[in-house]
Design a protein around this nucleic acid. Structure first.
Lengths: 123, 123
DNA sequence: CCTTGACTTAAAGTGAACTTCAGCCTATAT
DNA sequence: ATATAGGCTGAAGTTCACTTTAAGTCAAGG
């Protein structure tokens, strides 16, 4: 698979794919004889993981660290597990903040809808 | 309340509070005769709302727009409601992405824990 | 009076995550 | 063979949300 195919597949720019690789968020992708990236299944899985975690707000840094450990071999299972758990905690914190904000928005939306129906804004 | 008190209360720097005001994320704060900011209850509520929405990922721009409409008067209820609903949708999208990433992390964590127990990494 | 903390504008700096650019190379179709 | 579409690189540029700096003025308390 070429970079533009992967780009279309995951709806992410080719530039960003190259950037992700350079930043270490995915392991180095295989190349053709001419030096052009040729994404295999494993490469795609890494890309997918990176996109999923980034879109949830994990830092480039954290994802790169996980990949770095993964490439280092099986001795790194413990630190990898630690990293994943830490990131999960971080995510949980953000999740909670979002839930709170959403509750707040819902309350306001409700109030505005009531005001709109009754034509009154006192509350 | 002085700016430093509000700063301590919400754990946000005085600089950021001034920035939020300048950016329109909160309405202009009342002043003493000497021109020093004096935060009242309403000001604090605005600050709280701004912090809550920012921490959930709403843009400075969107929050400022909501405040701008609020200050414009009661004629703006409809656009305000629209704005809140739009932002809620945006938030929902992010929320969903986070849920997905969390599921993925949980799956990986589980696998790593199993691997750690059995001493095997094949999966 | 003097210190401490608040005020101003305007601009530069920071860090994160891309994005764009310039200039060159590869692949494929004609 | 050549045109053209797409890929490569490193470096510089952009955007967002602050944060800091400069270079002052002003105010409240001991």
């Amino acid at each position: 698979m070429t970079i533009s195919e992967v780009s279309r597949l995951y709806n992410i720019s080719a530039d960003t794919l190259r950037y992700y690789e350079k930043a270490g968020m995915i392991p180095p992708v295989g190349r053709t004889d001419g030096g052009i990236r040729d994404y295999g299944e494993a490469d795609c899985s890494w890309v997918e993981l990176a996109i999923c975690l980034r879109s949830a707000g994990l830092s480039v840094e954290a994802i790169a660290e996980y990949v770095r450990l993964s490439l280092e071999g099986e001795d790194t299972i413990t630190p990898r597990l630690l990293l994943l758990k830490e990131q999960r905690e971080l995510l949980m914190g953000k999740y909670e903040k979002m839930r709170l904000a959403m509750e707040r928005l819902d309350y306001k939306i409700l109030k505005y809808e009531q005001a709109q129906k009754s034509g009154v804004l006192e509350w």
